[in-house]
Nucleic acid binder design. Sequence first.
DNA 1: TAGTTGATGTGGTTGGACCACATGCCCTAC
DNA 2: GTAGGGCATGTGGTCCAACCACATCAACTA
Lengths: 244, 244
Amino acid sequence: MWSNHINYYCPMKTHQLVLSWIENELSEGRLAVGGRLPAERSLAEQLQVSRTSVREAIRILEAMGVVRAGVGSGPEAGTVVISDPTAALGSALRLHVATQHLPVADIVETRVLLESWAVSHAKPDSPELAGASRLLEKMDAEVMEVDEFLALDVRFHLALADAAGNAVVSAMMGSLRESITGYASRLTANLPNWDATAARLRIEHHDILAAVHNNDGERAAKLVAAHIEGYYREAGVGPGEQSE
Amino acid sequence: MWSNHINYYCPMKTHQLVLSWIENELSEGRLAVGGRLPAERSLAEQLQVSRTSVREAIRILEAMGVVRAGVGSGPEAGTVVISDPTAALGSALRLHVATQHLPVADIVETRVLLESWAVSHAKPDSPELAGASRLLEKMDAEVMEVDEFLALDVRFHLALADAAGNAVVSAMMGSLRESITGYASRLTANLPNWDATAARLRIEHHDILAAVHNNDGERAAKLVAAHIEGYYREAGVGPGEQSE
DNA sequence: TAGTTGATGTGGTTGGACCACATGCCCTAC
DNA sequence: GTAGGGCATGTGGTCCAACCACATCAACTA
């Protein structure tokens, strides 16, 4: 911007200027979750940059799960601050998996690591565990499609992760799952007998939940690790396997 | 786009269309790390969208550490595919810390978790450990400023994390550190006696490295956890402390 | 009073224009 | 023939002016 008029070196791109202004407003507490950003045109005038640059900054924040943009008027309109760390981490991981610089094996290993820790630190009386229990009942009671079962499975594991009460671990777990959902879904085609596998998964889920309820974190961690690794092994993804 | 002309519902924003096209090119292997995206103008024409929309998509990829944009001509110019997962996760975490929806305590806890796992799975003969060793020598030999010491400290811990050979864990560790560097730097002001603390940190670093070299992963993990938690406790950030 | 219609303000998208930068070719001067 | 300068080309960076679709609200009308 300035570098166009005077000769001072200005290393910051215009949209980064907007970005840092917004980040500063957040840090200082003048903008909080639920609050609204100024309209794009006002912000552009206020910061003396073009609306294009403001939009680029907002796009980045949107991709990071920091804001949500809505057209029209009323409570749902405008650009409002939200907080969805999972979205940011998830799409970032997915993209880097696409570049094939993040092996799927490493993602699975990290998932085992995080989830083992989560169940061993979960509070047995947390509301998230009650939700996990209800999910298991639903998985037991109904006959369902493979994809529907897998969707409930994801929610069950995320509920387990949430029960540990660490927002960062929860967000990372969610993003790891999101980044490999497509991959995990294709894996089911490799399974020799889906019904048998599903039955085994149901039993293991109950064992894990029981261990958590008994405050036996160590056992829960071992069961979770075996549960996850067993699934991928059965689907043909052993250690050293290629990513997709 | 289409929704402007015919009445079919088109839920995808134009820049997301570009985004998914690029992601697909990556997945299919037609674009790989080191490769170049078509020029913005060509891509816009090819996908039948405006250059603005292409730029918004590229901005997001740039923020995610997937591409690097350079002006001019020659090998450094154009938009080339890179792979820097740490950048993406780091800025995402930093922003969400700014919204005060990710407690710093959770970040520290996650760091302990990941780093403990890393040292307990590090290969004693990995080249990263040799690098870590050299960093320790430098920290021992020279008298330096606080910030310089902290910078070396960061590099040492990242080298430890890399030694485990899991790209996801490495990226997450890096992003966690990046998201709280500013915070950690301010913490040093709380320390009663920096020189004494620095001396202790040096000793603990050597102990950790020795444990890893002795293939005593369990001991290394315990030492790392105590090392990190001890530092934050001394700086006045105990369990349940407020984030910034 | 009830329904319609327009004013207003939001983000979404587009095309065009100009800039700074970096390369490489071509043409000139030696 | 060679070395030098200068322009053509192509890149991303920035800005502007306009238009669209949407949602709300107020004023106006029947």
